[in-house]
Amino acid sequence: MSYTGPDFEPPQPRRSPLRRPLTVAVAALVPGALLGWGVYAAVGGGADDGGPNGADRAAGARPSAAPSSGGAASASDDAEESAGSSSPAPASSKPSAPASKSAPAAGSGPLKGKVVVIDPGHNPANFRHASEINRKVNVGTHWKECDTTGTATNAGWPEAEFTLDVAHRLRTLLEEQGATVKLTQDGDRSYGPCVDERARIGNEAHADAAISIHADGSGAGNRGFHVIMPGAVHDGAADTRAVVAPSAELGQRVAGNFVRATGSAPSNYLGDGTGLVTRTDLGGLNLSTVPKVFIECGNMRDGKDAALLTSGSWRQKAAQGMSEGIVSFLRG
Rank of each mutant, 00 (worst) to 15 (best):
A41Y: 01
A73K: 07
F162T: 00
P6T: 09
P110H: 08
S190M: 00
N126Y: 01
A232F: 08
E161M: 04
S267Q: 10
A242M: 06
A220L: 12
S328N: 14
N138P: 03
A245G: 14
A89G: 14
S93M: 02
A65D: 12
L183S: 04
A152W: 01
R14W: 13
G121Y: 03
A238N: 11
L18H: 13
D239Y: 04
L276M: 15
P104E: 09
C146S: 11
G107V: 00
S2F: 03
S76F: 07
L174R: 12
Q12I: 15
V139L: 10
A155T: 15
N138K: 01
V117N: 11
G224A: 13
T280S: 14
R135Q: 14
S76R: 12
F225C: 05
L164C: 02
L330I: 04
C146M: 07
G202W: 09
D196E: 13
A207L: 02
V30S: 14
T280R: 15
G84D: 13
P90T: 12
L164M: 03
V117T: 06
V293A: 10
N126P: 01
V327W: 11
N138A: 01
P291L: 04
W157I: 06
G312I: 01
S85A: 12
D235L: 07
Q252A: 15
L308R: 00
A220C: 08
S82C: 07
D216N: 11
D239A: 03
Q252V: 13
C146W: 02
A27V: 04
T289Y: 05
D165R: 07
L308A: 02
D302G: 15
R169V: 01
V195L: 09
R260Q: 06
K112V: 10
L34V: 04
F294W: 13
G312C: 09
G312N: 07
G84P: 00
P10I: 15
T240P: 09
G332I: 08
G156L: 13
P13L: 06
S328I: 04
R260V: 09
G121N: 01
A210Q: 11
N257S: 15
A103Q: 10
D49K: 14
G51S: 06
S264D: 14
G303W: 05
P104N: 07
P52Q: 11
L287A: 07
D216L: 06
S108P: 01
L35F: 11
G271M: 05
A79K: 13
Y269N: 06
S288W: 03
A66V: 10
P6C: 06
N138S: 08
A41L: 11
Y191I: 01
R260E: 04
P21G: 08
D196F: 01
D302S: 15
V290I: 12
E159C: 08
